[in-house]
Computed example of a mutant assay.
Amino acid sequence: MGNKQQKSDQINQSQSNQKQNTQQIQDQESNMNFNQLKQQLIKEQQKFSMLGVSLVIARNNQGKFLAVKENYDQGWWIPGGLVDPPEDFVTAAIRETQEEAGIDIEIKGILRIEQNFNKSARYKVVFYGEPKDQNQKPKQIPDSESQEARWVTLKELEELGKKPPYLRGQELLVFGQYIEKGGPIYPLSIIETTLVDKFDFKKQVDINQKSNMQIEYQLNQQNNQIQKVQQNETKYVPLNVKLVNAPTNRMIGLSLIVIRNQEGKFLAVKETNNRGWWLPGGKVDPPEDFISAAIRESKEEAGIDINVKGVLRIEQDFTGAFLRYKVVFYAEPIDQKQKPKDFADNESEEARWVTLNELRALGKNPPYLRGNELIEYGQYLEKGGPFYPLDIINQLK
């Protein structure tokens, strides 16, 4: 009996110690402050390398699609590959199609933006293109880029996929059917690319304080573009790209949000460190996606829970150390009566619902405006500029 009682006491003591340890761990976790949690998240982010990828669905005037036979028996797929700075997504799409398929194409629009996280974070833009020369023959000679390329119907592609090397993926079949059924091709104007040598804050401040005449000129140009998009059913808009040397393809993702309430006011955030008034936004923290980041940043910086309605613009620029891939969303508050944040923390100083005139007035005094984005997008929306459905962004698990 004595041994049994001793063993029972040992078991009870062990269970008691385990409960105490568990409670201590829980207490430690509950006492961890926001900054500590943020540091843990940063360590997790460092496990991810972020890369840009351009993929192309190309179709000729016979309704056939361009298929590439990949090296190393990977199978038939679509032209595409990594973005190599200083090129942008569109330039990469044109280059990859020439290298892998031997076809010079004109990029007509965007089919989808995709992002997925595995060992790396990949931001993919799937373009729609057409050959510049309908008589140009696809590549037939193997090299380091591919084995060959062919114009095929979707039925012919299915037949190719029944025998080795099979299909590398279903993308061409899926997007081919989507296009044949009249699925929308989104305009290239969604993507705005400016690659610069480095970010000069003082220069940016000077740019932000440019004359009202210059700002009005930009807005008029933007309004003319809106009218052209609305008049053109195919929504094909040329892309204006400026490229400057960029030595790396390391990328970070950013979500920015233009939020408007039912009174027509926009949500402005007073940034920390005297940076001025701006729109809510910040870095995507993998493995979260762009939409989740937009919702989180709006809550953290402005105290407002939002319903993300669509995409206004996708921007790509270079800071001197890495590429920044930005998605600018349009959103509305879930609760129209919810009050913006009115206290300072490490995310922001405060937030306010403002008209564009009120925002301009804020920008006349310190800390001024961090940038003109909210004014420009506000004007764009007030003049009826379109935003694009969230379907354009696909989060791949």
Rank of each mutant, 00 (worst) to 15 (best):
K64Y: 04
A93E: 01
K235P: 01
D104T: 10
Q395Y: 12
E288Y: 04
E216W: 09
N21D: 11
V284M: 07
G80E: 07
E233T: 06
Q5Y: 11
R275S: 15
K283E: 15
E271L: 12
R352H: 14
I103K: 06
E349S: 12
K47V: 03
G363F: 05
I334F: 10
N346P: 00
A361S: 12
A294S: 09
Q338R: 09
F65K: 01
T91M: 12
G75K: 03
Q62E: 15
S255G: 04
S120R: 09
I375K: 01
K265A: 07
R324F: 07
T272K: 15
G102M: 08
S120I: 02
I107Q: 06
D88I: 01
R250I: 07
Q170C: 00
I375F: 11
D9R: 13
A101L: 08
I107S: 10
N232G: 06
R112F: 00
I57N: 07
Q15P: 00
G310S: 04
W151P: 01
V56A: 15
L173W: 05
P238K: 05
V90R: 06
E350Y: 08
M32N: 08
Q147F: 12
W76C: 08
S30M: 11
K210V: 08
P138H: 02
P79Y: 08
K4T: 05
F343V: 09
L362H: 01
G129D: 08
V125M: 15
P184Q: 12
D289M: 09
P79S: 10
D143K: 05
V152A: 12
Q115M: 12
E297L: 14
I190E: 05
V241Q: 15
E376M: 14
Q28C: 06
E349Y: 10
T153K: 03
I295S: 03
E358K: 11
T22I: 14
N240W: 11
V311C: 08
N273W: 12
V328E: 04
E300G: 01
V269N: 05
W76M: 07
K124D: 09
Q98N: 02
E349I: 15
N274Q: 14
N212Q: 13
I291F: 11
